[in-house]
């Protein structure tokens, strides 16, 4: 089934009333659904429900911006460590290609309060786009659960769509190996400014001129529709 197959929330609330905390061992498979977007190192983490890595309509943290603009998950990892999260950083061991998938194994037996799941990774080529699964209540019944994941814009960098820097606050997007191969060059850049809050990404403009035009993004290859990813949680 392509949509969530079980009524998750009701199950979690039901358990929460009878049993305050649930230990769990589960796997998290991340599938890149896009036609031509690479995901930078993915952060998969279970944490307490009172914390969030991001919130739509609110400014991104500097740590989230670091991930969304350059693919560096060190800052996000530090936040997660500080709140006692159960982390599985970088299950793909680098870039996750279009159509590819990677699986993280998590066990919250030692931290039974970590009952929600978050998954983030930068989308390349974009200036500050990222996949975001935000504080999903982790199913407690054994089984396989499929969730659709949307693409967000961190709102911290102008979407000029030019190859450039992955450092926070610097223009352009980083272009490692296969991303550089699929990207154009010498674009004049799209006139844009940072949007200042996290929101659903509006997609890329791109063009079909690999050596010029307004954008270094290929409008045919790098476009997407939501969902951009699927997360498959298998509770053991």
């Amino acid at each position: 089934m392509n949509t969530p197959v079980k009524t998750l929330l009701a199950g979690v609330i039901g358990c929460a009333m009878s049993i305050p905390t649930m230990a769990a061992e589960f796997s998290v498979e991340v599938v890149n659904l896009t036609r031509g977007i690479y995901f930078t190192p993915i952060m998969v983490a279970a944490h307490t429900p009172d914390a969030k890595l991001f919130e739509s309509g609110q400014p991104a943290s500097t740590e989230l911006a670091q991930m969304a603009e350059g693919g560096n998950i060190d800052g996000v990892a530090s936040i997660l460590t500080s709140i006692g999260a159960t982390q599985s950083p970088n299950p793909a061991g680098g870039l996750l290609a279009p159509g590819a998938s990677a699986t993280a194994e998590l066990n919250t037996d030692a931290a039974t309060g970590n009952t929600v799941l978050s998954v983030v990774a930068m989308m390349l080529p974009t200036n500050d786009g990222f996949i975001g699964l935000n504080s999903l209540p982790i199913p407690t019944e054994p089984g396989r659960y499929v969730f659709n994941v949307n693409g967000y814009d961190a709102g911290t960098e102008a979407n000029d769509e030019l190859v450039g820097s992955g450092a926070p606050g610097e223009a352009g997007f980083p272009a490692p190996g296969p991303v550089l191969t699929a990207s154009g060059s010498n674009g004049t850049g799209i006139s844009a400014s940072a949007e200042n809050y996290v929101h659903i990404h509006r997609g890329v403009i791109g063009d079909t001129d690999p050596t010029g035009g307004v954008s270094d993004i290929d409008s045919v290859v790098h476009r997407w529709l939501n969902p951009v990813a699927r997360v498959i949680v298998t509770v053991k």
Partner: peptide, 9 residues
């Protein structure tokens, strides 16, 4: 560009 099934853009 990539001979695999993916989501459509």
């Amino acid at each position: 560009v990539n001979n695999v099934v993916t989501g459509s853009g």
